[in-house]
Design a protein around this nucleic acid. Structure first.
Length: 496
RNA sequence: UCCGACGUAGCUCAAUGGUAGAGCGGGUGGCUGUUAACCACUAGGUUGCAGGUUCGAGCCCUGCCGUCGGAGCCA
């Protein structure tokens, strides 16, 4: 029996005979020599099988990709191996010879990949994103723990609406209808009155019939709640949290982010203080000539980019027609395929722009900001932007009001830059509750326990919710939230 | 719920209304340093489903189903 090790630690065993256990990620053959690529969850490495090792050669010569196996052999340094080390195989034990693996090293469409999400996770890109997700979550927890917050697990089954009854998932609970939680907030407020500074982290569910790159029906949210906090304190907390998340992800995952194609410069610019605007200022800005001109400029740039990509594709296609060697054709076809996807995305974006411009130009005070409005505003800043003081009519009952002709609430949304939009929503909480509930057409008796919080020693308090998937989409520079969660639940997809 | 695009081999895509093809993946054979290897041969199709127009439909029309993107709503 030889030392078992992992691919990550291979370099520490140079010259020794070790055993690696993992999956067959790929194979190339050279007649009397095989180049296996092994994957074990810590990395990838090359294993060499020569024909003299007759048993090992026979065992792996036709082994399908993604079969599981353990290989034993000497670790040696070789510049030709990716990672710098390779293993010269002496023995192979096939743990399970698989069937033909559906996902090939060639491009696939998103529908096919999502249909095979359980297998797609083995590919490098999903695994990279999930590791960054792990870091993001760990950073959030560490951030709150270090500041004296107590973790409170709030229930997932709940008797009533947190925000909007229209978007609740009903569940049969021994003959009664209860709902999957949309937020832990109301329960968190109770715990806040007991422990001062608290946070919850868990899945939340919204039955929104939205099919956009920003939406999941099941997503994870981290929500802090702080006693004696006013809106400014809540904003300062959110700002510090985002700075910590960006800094930690940059520090630990620079290579991963580059592998995902993320431009690091915009992330490096994420430093406090973030710009702050009121809703009314945003409404004016949306309707302004400057914004219209900005969108037109962006569209002109996009059209130029689109033409450049189309020209580039044409050049590559010509080159492809004149190319003999197939490996070069292969590479050209991949580039053409990637360009085609980029062109399609950009064309779609350009199609939507006039509509978004129209929506912004005709924006009226009182509406909540739409996704396209957030995108427009967040493209105007290099750092995340706070938008505060939304119309009370557009927001939930539990936000504290500022009285006036057109009442606003002490709330804030944080918009991620580069067009990503809202990643945080929060507020200072209401203290005169019953009237607020009635104003929203809700029944106070449904919220009796929550009303108790204002009957027994209420204090000013506030908090916010951070959407993990949207934040991760922004950090990784992805086009769609569905890649940031292991098994996305969207309108129209429940499988696998 | 509404608007738009798409649906061809296991996968990614071609195919003026006129004989359904390529590459990858699979199979067989060859090659001792490959890097999403390469070379030769090979199998693989009810063109999403149901109607319609036409001498003739993958292509045109209608309906349905599915996927993708957007609006409303939202983290």
């Amino acid at each position: 029996m030889h030392t078992s090790t992992t691919i990550r630690e291979l370099g520490e065993h140079e010259g020794q005979v070790v055993t690696l256990r993992g999956w067959l990620a790929g194979r190339r053959s050279g007649g009397k020599i095989l180049f296996l690529t092994l994957r074990d969850g810590t990395g990838l490495c090359q294993a060499i099988v020569e024909a003299q090792q007759a048993d090992a050669f026979a065992a792996t010569e036709k082994l399908p990709r993604e079969s599981s196996l353990s290989v034993t052999g000497a670790v040696r340094r070789d510049a030709r191996a990716a990672g710098g080390f390779e293993i010269a195989v002496q023995q192979v034990a096939v743990l399970h010879a698989g069937g033909e693996f559906p996902i090939t090293p060639k491009p696939h469409g998103i529908d096919f990949l999502m249909e095979h999400r359980h297998l797609w996770l083995r590919s490098r890109r999903p695994a990279t994103i999930l590791r960054i997700r792990h870091t993001l979550i760990e950073t959030c927890r560490t951030f709150f723990n270090a500041r004296g917050f107590t973790l409170i697990d709030t229930p997932i089954l709940s008797p009533g609406a947190g925000e909007d009854a229209q978007t609740l998932f009903p569940v049969d609970y021994f003959g009664e209808t209860v709902y999957l939680t949309q937020t832990g907030q109301l329960y968190l407020e109770s715990a806040c009155m007991a422990l001062g500074k608290v946070y919850c982290f868990g899945p939340t569910f919204r039955a929104e019939k939205s099919k956009t790159r920003r939406h999941l029906t099941e997503f994870w949210m981290i929500e802090p709640e702080v006693a004696f906090a006013e809106l400014g304190d809540v904003m300062a907390l959110a700002e510090a949290l985002i700075c910590a998340c960006v800094a930690t992800v940059l520090a630990r995952h620079e290579a991963d982010l580059i592998a995902l194609g993320r431009d690091l410069e915009p992330l490096r610019r994420v430093q406090a203080p973030f710009p702050r605007m009121t809703y009314s200022e945003v409404a004016e800005r949306l309707r302004s000539d400057a914004t219209r001109q900005q969108i037109e400029t962006e569209m002109a740039q996009e059209r130029r980019q689109l033409q450049a990509w189309i020209d580039q594709r044409g050049t590559l296609e010509l080159k492809l027609a004149g190319t003999q060697r197939t490996w070069e054709q292969d590479k050209l076809q991949l580039e053409i395929h990637a360009l085609r996807t980029e062109v399609e995305d950009l064309e779609r974006d350009l199609e939507n722009r006039p509509r978004h411009m129209e929506l912004a130009a005709s924006f009226t005070w009182g509406k909540d900001l739409g996704g396209s409005d957030e995108t427009i505003i967040s493209r105007q800043f290099e750092r995340p932007v706070f938008v505060t003081h939304y119309p009370a009519e557009a927001k939930a009952f539990y936000m504290k009001r500022v009285p006036g002709d057109r009442p606003v609430v002490l709330n804030m949304d944080l918009l991620a830059p580069e067009g990503y939009g809202e990643i945080i929503g929060g507020s200072q909480r209401v203290d005169v509750l019953e009237a607020a509930i009635r104003d929203k057409g809700l029944k106070p008796e449904d919220y009796d326990w929550y009303l108790d919080l204002r009957r027994y020693g209420s204090v000013p308090h506030g908090g916010f919710g951070l959407g993990i998937e949207r934040t991760l989409t922004w950090l990784c520079g992805l086009k769609h939230v569905r890649e940031t969660i292991p098994f996305p639940r969207t309108l129209g997809r429940m499988y696998p």
